[in-house]
């Protein structure tokens, strides 16, 4: 077989493969639910109900989507330049660490000063964490996939060391947990009485800003050029390494905001289970969004909905929550395939 590019794909050609991908994912999930002894319709119904079935569920989904928008953006920005940042998890923890270190009493400032300072400090820390792999790549040609992956492990151990040492909460009854941040360092709710904090607002704003950078700025153009064809970009006089470093700084900063928002908006302190893999899930979010910053918002809410829905489904139907992870991994693989099939036709030989 071989693949032949389609010059002007028809509407049917552009829509059929993605729709088929979604259906196949649902069918696979149903089969797995049946293996676990659940009724597939009931299981899927429970997931949807758990995700959007009540005001509480919707807010829970949006809360869960918040860190995913940040990590999804981080991945989307980096992947656009074909800079493979798989280290959003480490950058998230860097941002969370900064928020706790500066927000738990070091800076006794009022909220309207403290919160922006914390956010900026978080961005800086995340950018710095990704700067190391970026420099290793541009200076030594070391593949960033492996270094960013390995940094996730190193950084989590570093956090664990701090939580059992200098950052340990004396009131924590022996748990490896940091002290709580000041009340001034907490993100307020968007609407009083509803459990949705301003981290979500910040995530939406970030998405729009990144979209503007990508579509309306020289840097955005350069990032795309570097991602599409590095040789051609270099020939056109674009400083590849500089663009890659800038991309890395933006990407690391975005992922770190996820950590800032989780600490300042939800948890108030830092523990080792702050992130159940938000950094890795960001990859799925970014790919489902086709690396479009505005699409990241939709994809993050969708992915968060599956997780939140699967949690409540699991309690009700007894099907393991890992069903959600399988669904998302399947959706990721099928979606990349489907997108390719919208632009190429398969020719048998």
């Amino acid at each position: 077989m071989r693949l032949e590019p389609i010059e002007h794909p028809s509407v049917a050609r552009s829509l059929t493969p993605p729709i088929l991908a979604i259906f196949t994912t649902i069918i696979i999930a149903s089969l797995l639910a049946m293996i676990a002894g659940g009724n597939p319709f009931a299981v899927l119904g429970l997931i949807i109900e758990g995700a959007v079935g009540s005001q509480f569920a919707v807010l829970e989904t949006l809360n869960r989507a918040t860190p995913l928008i940040f990590t999804g953006l981080a991945v989307a920005v980096a992947f656009r330049a074909k800079f493979w940042n798989i280290g959003a998890e480490a950058q998230l923890y860097a941002g969370a660490l900064m928020t706790v270190v500066l927000g738990a009493g070091t800076l006794p400032w009022p909220s309207f000063v403290l919160l922006p300072v914390l956010a900026l400090a978080a961005i800086l820390s995340g950018a710095l964490v990704l700067l190391i792999p970026a420099i290793l790549k541009t200076r030594f040609g070391v593949d960033e996939v492996v270094t960013t992956l390995l940094f996730n492990f190193i950084f989590l151990l570093f956090i664990s060391m701090l939580l059992e040492g200098p950052l340990k909460d004396p009131m924590g009854m022996g748990w490896p947990k940091s002290p709580r941040v000041l009340p001034e360092a907490r993100l307020p709710r968007i609407v009083e009485g509803l459990r949705l904090h301003w981290g979500f607002g910040l995530a939406l704003i970030s998405a729009v800003v990144i979209w503007l950078i990508q579509t309306r700025s020289v840097l955005g153009y350069e990032i795309r050029a570097v991602g599409l064809n590095r040789k051609a970009a270099a020939f056109a006089g674009i400083p590849i390494n500089l663009v890659l470093v800038k991309t890395a700084l933006i990407s690391g900063g975005l992922a770190a905001l996820a950590g800032f928002s989780e600490v300042a908006g939800v948890k108030a302190s830092l523990t080792l289970d702050l992130s159940p893999g938000f950094g890795y899930t960001g990859i799925i979010v970014a790919m489902l969004a086709l690396l479009n910053p505005l699409g990241v918002i939709v994809a993050a809410i969708f992915v968060a909905g599956i997780f939140v829905g699967a949690d409540s489904m699991s309690r009700a139907a007894g099907v393991p929550t890992y069903l959600a992870d399988i669904m998302l991994a399947t959706a990721l693989l099928l979606m990349v395939l489907a997108i390719m099939l919208t632009r190429f036709r398969i020719i048998r030989e």
Binding site: L32, A36, I86, P320, Y322, D325, I326, L332, L333
Partner: peptide, 15 residues
């Protein structure tokens, strides 16, 4: 694809 396979293999193993 590689990362997707890692996610799929890990989650289906846990399942």
């Amino acid at each position: 694809v590689g990362l997707g396979v890692t996610l799929l293999a890990t989650s289906s193993t846990y399942y």
